Amino acid sequence: MGTSRADTYLITGGSGYFGYRLACSLLQRGAKILLFDMSPPSQELPEGITFLKGDVRDYVQVVEAVTGIDCVFHIASYGMSGREQLNRRLIEDVNVQGTEHILRACVERGVPRLVYTSTFNVVFGGQVIEGGDETLPYLPLHLHPDHYSRTKSIAEMAVMAANGTALEDGSGVLRTCALRPAEMIHHLIGPIYNFQPLLTRTEVYKTGVTHYFSMAKAKAELGYEPREFNLDEVVQWFRSRGHGKKPISPLKRLMVDIFLVAAFVAVVLSYLPVVGSLSVVSGSQ
């Protein structure tokens, strides 16, 4: 996408690691960036990147955000892992309703391009995948092991179905595409970013079943050339924001130990017979 006329890009969920890095990359290409999120990034925004507080579940806020935008990167989502997976209502509202709001607002406000951040989970449900690509069929919705994957699949299908929709201002049509980035595995990120994953079928599938995808078509048809990266920069980013395992102070450790001992004693005492109740029973006999 050329940026010779200083295109303006909207990034939903732009305050997170991926969204902010995308914004900085686009900025280097001469674009203007609007980050749309519920809270601002913790780092200072460089000139050319602005922040707009908002929620994809609120259609009025979405319409305001997309007005005057040349391209939307829809990254915002919810429920990928950990405790978030339990909140089915919020997962549905953000991933499905939020995406519907983005699509409808783009058509209403004449935004010609939309890039949707999907997930490989839309085709993966625990089966072995070796060298997969976009020709793989969607996993049937009823076979998805978690609500996040199911809603992301519904949202991606809606995005792809919207491709070619006429814009209401008569300026052309909406062009859409979906990207399915691989997700970082919990056992790599856990020591760095201290969230609490649930041991669900999805977590087991991701870490225990072979599934990888080919970039051959991207290289051949789009001229894509992957660059090598490592996790050092990711580690530093999360650590600079206070994530990671923090040492427990001696006082806090002592308090925890006292609590554990007290809880153990209480459990033991709960199994001992009560003298008074025994004497009453004996007297009644």
Rank of each mutant, 00 (worst) to 15 (best):
A216F: 02
D133Y: 03
Y20G: 02
N121F: 08
R57I: 01
I189P: 00
S270C: 04
A161G: 00
R104K: 15
H186V: 14
L199C: 01
N163R: 07
S81Q: 13
A178Q: 08
G14N: 11
D257M: 12
A220W: 04
L174Q: 06
A161H: 09
E92R: 13
V209F: 08
F213A: 05
S279Q: 11
I102S: 05
G208V: 05
G170D: 10
D70R: 12
P181C: 04
P41V: 02
A158Q: 12
R241D: 09
P46R: 01
R5S: 12
Y212L: 03
Q127E: 04
Q43M: 10
I49M: 08
Y205G: 02
R239P: 00
M215C: 11
M184E: 01
K245S: 14
H187N: 04
V107Q: 08
Y17K: 01
D55E: 07
S240A: 15
G242Q: 06
M1E: 12
S277E: 13
L231H: 10
G79Y: 05
L52K: 15
Y271N: 02
L86N: 11
V280Y: 13
E100T: 03
D7Q: 14
F51I: 00
G30W: 13
G190M: 09
L198P: 10
G125D: 07
G132M: 03
Y116K: 10
L198N: 09
R88H: 14
A262V: 14
S214C: 08
R150E: 13
K246L: 11
T176W: 09
L167F: 04
Q28P: 00
I91V: 11
R239S: 10
E84H: 09
S279N: 05
E233W: 06
I75H: 14
V280G: 12
L278R: 01
S279D: 08
E233S: 15
D37L: 03
K246A: 15
V267Q: 12
G126S: 03
L167N: 03
M157G: 09
T202C: 05
V128L: 09
K32T: 05
E183S: 04
Q285N: 08
V234Q: 06
V275R: 07
V234I: 14
Q28C: 00
L143M: 10
T165N: 02
V128Q: 14
V281L: 11
G14I: 01
V275Q: 07
A6R: 15
G190K: 05
D37S: 15
P41F: 02
Q28N: 10
Y148M: 04
